[in-house]
Design a protein around this nucleic acid. Structure first.
Length: 645
RNA sequence: GCUGGCGUAGCUCAAUCGGCAGAGCAGCGGUUUUGUAAACCGCAGGUUGGAGGUUCGAUUCCUCUCGCCAGCUCCA
């Protein structure tokens, strides 16, 4: 086919290619001759680089349309959205200065320098103006200028934060985007015009420091989100409502599981009987499984001499998270922020042989950390909490196998609690680190080998390791798709050195063991909070504080109901009876609100037949059955053990 | 720690401009004996987070303080 010199070849993701005139835009090339690309297409990847649809093609190229379906598409969409909001802010409040406004997961924000915080009424006004800007469908136009020109431009407009940004960038050219009167410094790309943003909503205002540094001035941030359809936006808002509905602080109080009270102190948790029972069940499961997995369980005190923390290095590296020491007799004592030094001292209490390794000490160890008041958050961030901690002492050649065992164990435990989606991160050597590069390399590759051996996918967080060694973090995804970090496996070269740990090798000489810190649930408090939200308070039967409640229709069935509860309790089930003089509808409502898995309705009919009418949570009618069948139902939910898998 | 918002009965929330602090639920007493998400009547419940100030008078305005919430920063 003869090739016209004024034509270029574009290749599409499906492998097909077409000839288009040189100088046409990416949008035109995607749609064929003349017309514009379809409305769903927001931007384009030109030879792998994300760019505007209005980009003029100058040579042969591969073109991939970008829609809201892809994370990049969402990014572009939200980025354009935040420009629209910024324009609205400038129009409603001309004295506001622009700082920075990126797209974030599920939305966007923009920071402004403004003389006061934005009120909800301000947000309404801004949102209304943003909708007008969308309706006006103004095109996003890209222009480029030299850095110096851009600095002059923004200085003239009084946008000192933009000037600050420009003064810190390396590039000698800057790109600006405008829609109508509004001009912003921006790398781009953007959607073709403001009308592409269909459904936009401003959510909240908050303070934020310029460049995230508390020494800098406080800016006013506005959060918002946007979607290609009103239905998608509504669904997102419904999800935000759902998150509120599941808030563990609310559910914890409603279900009478835990409270945190002024009189006790911030970040300190009271476990009420039902919450404590759930915790006990979690801990019992944990202990059983650890014993089965070759861990030895230990206990350690809550305080220790300050010197111990000096030896461990916590005093140097962790002091700001520790409560102030207390003076006792002639020495100072420290409330423990971690359990490791104690486990180390247990290791050190004997001379160890290579034959003893690996040694695995586990403890549900309660630690106290001084957290700044602003970071405390329900059960998810507290000052006193119990770690499901363990420290493994092993030879360097055992790291991979030990980490592998920990990973298997972690997945088993997390799955038992109902989590099936995980995100794994391997964190490598940070700039400030102890231990030789060879040791780091060896340990990192051992971690990597353990991960690969499990066939799980993971991401690398370069330089995010702890100073004492590389680590693997596991995040769980809850039922709403939110990721929570719980589990961590950390290799430690530092403590064996500091505490001069040793084992006697085959050669009869002392060698230094490697230490591995690991937690599966992280903190019981935090894990409990996550579980509470994951299940919206409706814990699986094996964890439910009350598994079955006998509800008699009238007081006539009291004795029978008590017998039923007695039989269930004798079989190891957690059962209660509601014998009050109340209507059955009322009793069911209360049991339902308490999220009890099985309601056993008992009237004359059931007494006569020797059965109970079983009602599941949220109204399921499971029919009438005798008590042994109910016991089977409850027992069926008990977790498997790791070895029985 | 910083910025902003908020603290009223056990819980959820009212109280106009500074003018007698109220409701529903829960609790207690009684009536009702009931078939799958709220029976009815009554009673009781408060130093309005705490301290100080302004005022004839403060839940309301001011200062300080404690706590909670959102965000920044940090993190199990």
């Amino acid at each position: 086919m003869p090739r016209d010199s004024k034509q270029i070849q574009v290749t599409l993701p499906d492998g097909t290619s077409r000839m288009v005139p040189v100088g046409c835009t990416a949008a035109e090339a995607l749609s064929g001759s003349g017309g514009a690309a379809s409305r769903e297409v927001l931007a384009v990847k030109l030879n792998g680089v994300l760019t505007d649809l209005s980009t003029v093609l100058t040579g042969d190229a591969s073109l991939a349309p970008i829609t809201f379906e892809s994370p990049e598409g969402q990014d572009v969409y939200r980025h354009s959205s935040t420009h629209i909001m910024a324009q609205a802010v400038k129009e409603v409040f001309p004295t506001a200065q622009l700082a920075i406004g990126p797209a974030i997961e599920e939305g966007f924000y923009y920071d402004f320098a403004f003389e006061r915080p934005f009120t909800p009424e301000d947000l309404d006004k801004i949102e209304a103006r943003a909708h007008e800007i969308i309706k006006a469908d103004r095109p996003f136009k890209r222009m480029e200028m030299s850095r110096q020109d851009a600095i002059r431009f923004f200085r003239q407009r009084g946008e000192s934060y933009k000037v600050d940004i420009l003064e810190h960038i390396e590039d000698q050219t800057a790109s600006l985007y405008s829609q109508g009167e509004f001009v912003d410094l921006c790398r781009g790309p953007h959607v073709p015009s403001t009308g592409r943003v269909t459904a936009l909503k401003l959510l909240s205002g908050a303070g934020a420091y310029w460049r995230g540094d508390e020494r800098n001035p406080m800016l006013q941030r506005i959060y918002g989100t946007s979607f290609p359809t009103q239905a998608a936006l509504d669904a997102h808002l419904a999800k935000l409502e759902e998150i509120k509905r599941r808030d563990h602080r609310k559910l914890g109080k409603e279900l009478d599981l835990i409270t945190m009270q002024d009189e006790i102190g911030p970040g300190l948790v009271l476990w009420h009987p039902k919450g404590a029972l759930i915790r006990l069940l979690i801990e019992n499961f944990w202990r059983e499984q650890h014993l089965q997995q070759g861990y030895e369980l230990v206990y350690s005190p809550h305080i220790a001499r300050l010197d111990l923390w000096r030896t461990s290095g916590h005093l140097d590296y962790y002091r700001e998270n520790m409560f102030v020491p207390m003076k006792v007799e002639a020495s100072e004592y420290q409330l423990k922020p971690m359990n490791c030094p104690f486990h180390i001292m247990i290791y050190k209490s004997h001379l160890r042989s290579y034959r003893d390794l690996p040694i695995r000490y586990g403890e549900l160890g309660t630690v106290y950390r001084y957290e700044r008041t602003g970071v405390l958050h329900g059960l998810l961030r507290v000052r006193g909490f119990t770690q499901d901690d363990a420290h493994l002492f092993c030879r360097p050649d055992q790291i991979e196998a030990e980490v592998g065992r920990v990973l298997d164990f972690t997945f088993f435990v997390l799955r038992t609690f109902g989590f099936s989606e995980f995100e794994l991160y391997l964190s490598t050597r940070p700039e400030k680190a102890v231990g030789s590069t060879e040791r780091w390399a060896q340990a990192t590759s051992a971690l990597e080998a353990a991960l690969k051996g499990r066939g799980v996918s993971y991401r690398i967080d370069p330089g995010e390791g702890v100073f004492y060694g590389p680590k693997v973090d596991i995040k769980i995804k809850d039922v709403l798709g939110r990721a929570w970090q719980c589990s961590t496996v950390q290799v430690d070269f530092n403590n064996p050195e500091r505490f001069e740990l040793a084992y006697i090798g085959e050669d009869g000489k002392p060698h230094q063991p490697i230490m591995i810190h690991r937690a599966l649930m992280g903190s019981i408090e935090r894990f409990f909070g996550i579980l509470l939200e994951h299940y919206a308070g409706a814990f699986p039967t094996w964890l439910a504080p009350v598994q079955a409640k006998a509800l008699c229709i009238t007081e006539k069935q009291r004795n029978y109901a008590e017998t039923v509860v007695g039989q269930l309790k004798a079989a190891g089930c957690r059962a209660e009876a509601d014998l009050r003089n109340e209507k059955i509808g009322f009793k069911i409502r209360e049991a339902e609100k308490a999220k009890i898995p099985y309601m056993l309705v008992i009237g004359d009919r059931e007494v006569e037949q020797g059965t109970v009418a079983v009602r599941g949570r949220s109204g399921a009618n499971l029919g009438s059955m005798a008590v042994p069948a109910v016991i089977d139902l409850i027992r069926a939910d008990l977790p498997q053990t790791m070895s029985a898998r």
